[in-house]
């Protein structure tokens, strides 16, 4: 793979690892996560951020490697996956409405309406309910005046 631009990838056969620099403008972190997740069962993946607008991915083979070629194949595969993930990230944003509509229809159509048994088994307890966006909070809880001196913060 002599067509990898110089300075983008560096190989260390002794450490069985290859490092690739990634431009964050081209490949968003979500795409990097996507590609990394696919690779963590076949090699060691470590992501760093050496500078603003730049990521550095280190892929380590699980065992020893014979030569640089094995590392080239690994990083080449990763680069292909990364490109696919970056493009998917873009088009899922572009086609979000369409994808969501089809998915909701598909799952809703398959699931149908809940039965009385389903409702009876529904877990209404507070513990199981995660509300990271604060949707279930009252307006006062969410936007009430800030606790002043002498008042307990809620």
């Amino acid at each position: 793979m002599s067509d990898i631009p110089q300075g983008l990838v560096s190989f260390d056969v002794g450490k069985a690892a290859v490092t690739m620099n990634v431009d964050a403008d081209v490949y968003p972190l979500q795409a990097l996560y996507g590609a990394a997740f696919i690779f963590i069962d076949r090699c060691y993946v470590f992501i760093d951020k050496p500078a603003q607008g730049q990521f550095r991915v280190t892929l380590g083979a699980r065992g020893t490697v014979e030569d640089e070629e094995a590392l080239r194949r690994l990083v080449g595969e990763f680069a292909n996956e990364l490109l696919t993930c970056a493009w998917r990230h873009q088009i899922t944003q572009d086609n979000r409405m369409l994808i969501e509509a089809v998915t909701m229809q598909a799952i809703g159509g398959a699931a149908g309406s809940p039965s009385l048994d389903d409702l009876a088994n529904f877990d209404f307890s507070d513990d199981a309910f995660e509300d990271p966006l604060g949707i279930a909070q009252s307006w006062e809880e969410k936007h009430g005046k800030k606790a002043g001196a002498g008042e307990d913060a809620t």
Binding site: Y33, A36, F37, I40, Y44, V45, F46, I47, G60
Partner: peptide, 13 residues
């Protein structure tokens, strides 16, 4: 160390 890094990355994702 490598396994821990993979695990931490997987959980983060």
């Amino acid at each position: 160390a490598n396994e821990l890094a993979n695990y931490a990355l997987g959980l983060t994702i």
